[in-house]
Design a protein around this nucleic acid. Sequence first.
DNA 1: TTCATTTGCTTTAACGTTAAAGCAAATTTA
DNA 2: TAAATTTGCTTTAACGTTAAAGCAAATGAA
Lengths: 352, 352
Amino acid sequence: MKKKATIKDIALLAGVSATAVSMALKDHSRISRTTKERIVGIAKKLDYWPNSVARSLKSKRSGTLGIVITSIMNPFYPELAKGIEDKAMERGYSIILCSTNYDARRQRYFVNILRSKGVDGIIFSSAEVDDPHILPLVDDGFPFVLVNRRTRSKLLEKKVDYVVLDNVAGGYMAMDHLYRLGHRRVALVVGSLATSTAVERTEGAQKALHDRGLAIDPQLVIECNFSWKKAYQATLDLLSLPSPPTAIFAQNDYMALGVREAILDSGRLIPRDIALIGFDDIAASAIRGVDLTTINQKKYEMGALAVDILIQKIEGKGGPVKQIVLPPEIIIRGSCGWRLRDAGQTVGPESG
Amino acid sequence: MKKKATIKDIALLAGVSATAVSMALKDHSRISRTTKERIVGIAKKLDYWPNSVARSLKSKRSGTLGIVITSIMNPFYPELAKGIEDKAMERGYSIILCSTNYDARRQRYFVNILRSKGVDGIIFSSAEVDDPHILPLVDDGFPFVLVNRRTRSKLLEKKVDYVVLDNVAGGYMAMDHLYRLGHRRVALVVGSLATSTAVERTEGAQKALHDRGLAIDPQLVIECNFSWKKAYQATLDLLSLPSPPTAIFAQNDYMALGVREAILDSGRLIPRDIALIGFDDIAASAIRGVDLTTINQKKYEMGALAVDILIQKIEGKGGPVKQIVLPPEIIIRGSCGWRLRDAGQTVGPESG
DNA sequence: TTCATTTGCTTTAACGTTAAAGCAAATTTA
DNA sequence: TAAATTTGCTTTAACGTTAAAGCAAATGAA
């Protein structure tokens, strides 16, 4: 492979030292205008680009951020990733993407890989509660930020920066919406209870009922690990119960699509026979005919914010721990119907 | 930030030279078993991980691949990216992801950034016809592979490795399917004619009609740049034509969703009033109620294959230029109906 | 005119790793 | 027993860049 020009090549051609070239390209004040212009001219002619690897070694800065997510296939991520990417690009950073494929052990591995590659900081969007790989990062003072999920470890919760949705409020909002539409028997298709998101959304949903002196029938709470397939099966099980739910709250839209499929397969219609609410507002939820009512989180903004916080930590203008909790927002589409069930009938599009 | 242990730290503790440590960790034959075990023990105790940056500088290998795509938000990419990621991980490489956000000029920029960061090779999934940044790579012998799109430059087409779908066959297949269902007036919602994919899919569609002595009405061919919005608008325009099409072939599923929305907004039903076929088989197309008939390409396999080819080039077992053209596959769902139009009526689900 | 400062460079050294070369001691071969 | 080889390390140097220190020449101040 043809070698790219280095500072030395330029120095040789310009008849100066390598340092002079480095100074010229950095617009150092102690280099004469004429020499600088000569050097810059030669650099341009040779199509010179500084070798970041050498720079990183010298400066301990790589201009690269590590991003650890569960899987790029998860429809939640593209928007988050775009927020991260755009902001990182705007601020002059590149990103190395790592997917754990839902294998928590890989997080530790990726942290080591990323640190060895000299990334300046890491964004975790897949942290599980009490992740053992987080502690060494805190101890070492290595810059990182959690997005979407946070750690619930007593030891760490005060020390770790994060940008998350107020998932308790989101869960509350979803259940509240269903309650107001008259639903009293609501099933919970839960994510993975190893994640803060699932725990908190469940908490919020329970609180919404508790505030009205009600409680969720434990029979109607099923952990589905954020899996489409498990959500599908869980729904079939729920629907064959002697006293099935009148509504289902799926803790993310991806599972909600599995729930939807099972409902339709059972010959029921949404929302005529059963109401459905999701969480995340992924792209597919807005498709005509899907019309999934859902709790939205500003994924793009979350990503961008996380990058800002991370870079601030990296560049030393740290300050106190940043823990940002964004408010959720309900997106009302057709999947829960539009009229109060109490008032007579539920009306909605004959979707599906 | 706490410094990570280096080879020197280990050397100091073990009372040997840095090179001895390097040899011990690499299981060099000229190091004694006892010394090696002592060194390895200390390394483990210090939680030593080799500094890849230093290694890269020395060895000119980073174990990192650059991936250049248009946008992670494009629903086509997650599956492709996963194929790339899984295979790269399997073979011990990390990936740096770059999105051009459909700005072709950024490709040149990213190529420079990536090379400066020392990536061992680049996968382009966003190449436009005659990209000017490709030529220097070929000249330098820098390893890269195109996926999904290929260059159509006369100068380069024989020299560049790629993995693509047989898009001509795909276009042919789509149009052929519509023809067999009785459609004679088919509109083409075209991507961007600056891409090989759009050009070839159009070519294939035209060929399918040409083989039957027909031709596409130029009035029914609209370039929409792979944009949902443009596809939506184009469809409204098509439908208000004095003699509107009986079917629409959208050159990717994402545009097909825009077409679908416009059709439904116009009060028509799919496929009762108009048939619709897409391309790519993105996740949303399979959703009940969307049921988009489409041409599938094995995105995951394409990504994995591209990585294999790239790594083969990187690791020197190059051989001849690899140009892989995969066969398309039609996924028949409900959006074109199931009976021959000639035979009477088209039947399909009352989707949407 | 003399000393102090500024300018415009060069030399040195370092970042962490690792091939290559070197070299004494141990072992094998003749 | 002497020469040749192997073992087990060390020293050196390099990858490309850039702070830091150095230093002669030009400029400024007294």
